[in-house]
Simulated assay, not measured.
Amino acid sequence: MADNRTMAQMLQAPIEGYEDAIVVPPINANNFKLKQTLINLVQGNQFTGKQDPHNHLRFFNKVTSTFRHPEVLNTSIKLLLFPFSLEGEARTWLDKEPPRSILTWDDLVSKFINQFFPPSKTTYLRNEITTFYQKPKETFNEAWERFKGLLCQCPHHGFSELHQLDTFYNSLNTNDQDALDSAAGGNFLDKNLVMV
């Protein structure tokens, strides 16, 4: 089939193919409108690709949970607002996703986390947690805060609370292990773990 367009017509930019990656389900609610204050809140803490993506999602969920509409699913609101929460490298990532490739909030979270927290980072942090040791001259409190920080950096680490306590206890220097044993009224590891 011959193309009868002129050279000028062939060189024109296409007018289609500009659909977003995120597909927001149709909203049939009367008088539904995103409030500018909510958009401003989301834009006040934009993710650039350099921060912790888990913290960004926690903040984003907290902000979006403040807005409810009886006829609109919260996941639809999140899908509408999420692009406003990105800038820089993160916005470029979303713009490069294939059109109509993100159909649900879970799709979006999965793609976002895998982009900005790849499996290699999970492996690295799980190894850091497993091989954690108290540094020389590091106090008990400093070691505990650093250990908790590693756990927070990788909330999907998969280690049970018992494994975490065992790892931390065994990473301590002898003096801090003795102090913890004394505070526990005997060997810390021999105590029953009471979940509250």
Rank of each mutant, 00 (worst) to 15 (best):
K148G: 11
S101N: 06
E16D: 10
A2D: 15
L41Y: 12
E142K: 04
E87N: 14
N170F: 09
Q134K: 07
F84P: 02
P26L: 06
L41E: 06
I15L: 14
E97Y: 11
S101M: 11
T6W: 11
K50H: 03
V196Q: 10
V24W: 03
N141V: 09
T37C: 00
A29Q: 06
M195F: 08
L162E: 11
R5Y: 07
A21E: 05
R126I: 12
N30C: 06
N28G: 06
K96A: 06
Q12A: 14
C154V: 04
V196A: 10
R100D: 00
S110N: 15
K121P: 02
T48P: 13
N170I: 12
L162I: 11
R68L: 11
E128T: 12
Q153F: 03
A183T: 05
Y18E: 13
V194E: 01
G158W: 14
G49L: 00
T167Q: 02
L80T: 00
L193D: 07
A143K: 01
S110D: 10
L80P: 05
F117I: 10
T167P: 00
P136I: 14
Y169N: 00
L81M: 08
T123A: 14
N28H: 12
Q12G: 14
L11D: 08
K35H: 01
L151D: 01
K33I: 15
N114A: 08
D178M: 14
S171A: 14
M1W: 11
A90Q: 03
E71Q: 12
R68V: 13
P53T: 11
N187K: 15
E128N: 09
Y18G: 09
T167D: 04
A29R: 07
H56A: 01
M195R: 06
A183G: 09
F168S: 04
Q36M: 05
N4L: 13
Q177V: 08
A8V: 06
F116K: 06
F47L: 09
L94E: 02
S65A: 09
T130W: 08
D95Q: 13
L11V: 14
S65P: 00
F82A: 01
D106P: 08
D190W: 03
N61W: 09
P136A: 15
D52N: 15
K137P: 15
Q153L: 03
V109R: 05
T174M: 07
G185A: 04
N30F: 07
N187L: 12
P99L: 12
I102G: 02
W144E: 01
L165D: 09
N187I: 13
T75E: 02
G185C: 01
C154H: 14
Q115M: 08
P26Q: 05
N30T: 15
A29I: 02
L150Q: 10
V24G: 00
L81E: 02
G186D: 00
I113Q: 09
Q43G: 12
T48S: 13
C154W: 03
M1Y: 12
